[in-house]
Amino acid sequence: MVPSDSKIQFDHQGRLRHFLTINGLPKETLVQILDTAESFISFGQREIRKVPLLRGKTVVNLFFEPSTRTRTTFEIAAKRLSADVINLSAARMSTSKGESILDTARTLEAMHTDLFVVRDSASGASHLIASHLPEHVRVINAGDGRHAHPTQAMLDMFTIRREKGGFEGLKVAIIGDVLHSRVARSQIHALSTLGVDEIRLIGPRTLIPTEVEAMGVNVTSNMAEGLSGIDVVMMLRLQRERMDGQLVPSEQEYFNRYGLTDDKLSYANPDAIVMHPGPINRGLEIASSVADGDRSVILSQVTNGIAVRMSIMAKLMGGQEDP
């Protein structure tokens, strides 16, 4: 059964028209996105880096929450597909103050835009926009509250597949603030759809959401136990505000228990890779020696982000053939 939060992503013929959450997307769709991204990856090195798949189309990056890398990689991805790109970074006043998020989107749609890339601090914001705009408009979720960040998860999957050759038999650990993480939620859906062997969440109980086991993961608070036999280590960013909310006593204690150091990494398999969605808090969730070490693929993630976002945009806009 297609989960209810996924239904809206498909048109009447069952084709993907929005990319809002990975929950409910079939494995073939994910693999297809990864395969197409693979064909785009060499583009970065070519002299002419553009394909005309989105020529004449208008893409709006509608960012109600600050972002550098996600917005930039979306912009580059859209431009390499020959789309016209408009960046709109607006601070949004919540509730009744100011223009509603829907009015902003409708106003931009009236200017004949084709694709919205939406980031907002409220979970469900891109669902809201997708369900109230005309049929022909496409929406990509570039992060909504704590709910989903599906393009980040896809670029993570792309990076894993490149590094590990596939997903079968892999054991993956996701470490840190799962509670507030849209990245973690999307990663979990992607990893389980692509068929990894095991997903483990590691963190203190204050940062692990209730009943998360229902998403098909195992939970532990012990790094030695959690990292044992792990092939892929996915770190999450810990926002410094969490200290104020009494979710973590102090940066020192967090780093002591969950900060990824070379010592702790030694519990994982010798060829385990280390990932982080960025931006990194060095010395809080990860030691510089690990972030910059030879097992880190953090910068590849950023590079891969462009090809994966090109692939997703091309898929939604109908250009599903290889370039």
């Binding site: 704590r146 709910h147 989903a148 849209r182 209730t210 998360v212 229902a214």
Partner: peptide
């Protein structure tokens, strides 16, 4: 409600 739905949708619980 704090439970499987708040966890799935990432909504404050």
């Amino acid at each position: 409600h704090e439970g499987k739905v708040s966890t799935r949708l990432g909504l404050p619980a």
